[in-house]
């Protein structure tokens, strides 16, 4: 595996991050936006582990951060889904374009 340069791994995570960002910006369904967010978080996880393994193999702090991120991502997903469901219950609509009541 050492013949794979660090840059390629980083490009993978970059590509995944911006795919997630694109999805977050264009998807109108809130659940789909949440999924895009998960992709972005995962690309960050990849980064942590890659840096840890390639640049600081003597420690495992990057891995520890990955674990924390996964835990927090789970909490975030749960809260976001609760909000989405509550919104759906009130408006029968989870289109982000229509969720602009606060403006008025």
């Amino acid at each position: 595996m050492s013949e794979i340069p660090l840059e390629h791994l980083l490009m993978l995570s970059t590509a995944l991050f911006f795919i997630g960002a694109y999805g977050f910006l264009t998807r109108r369904n809130m659940i789909a936006m949440l999924m895009s967010l998960e992709l972005m978080l995962n690309s960050v996880n990849i980064n942590f582990i890659v840096f840890n393994k390639y640049l600081f193999p003597d420690t495992i702090e990057g891995l520890g951060f990955t674990i924390f991120i996964i835990a927090i991502a789970a909490a975030e997903a749960a809260v976001a889904i609760a909000i989405i469901i509550n919104l759906y219950r009130n408006t029968k609509n989870i289109d982000a374009e229509n969720a602009d009541h606060l403006k008025h």
Binding site: L12, A15, I19, G20, G23, T26, A32, M35, S36, L39
Partner: peptide, 12 residues
Amino acid sequence: AAFILIAGILTV
């Protein structure tokens, strides 16, 4: 890598 990216693109 290709699998991850293709699946990611299809997701969004």
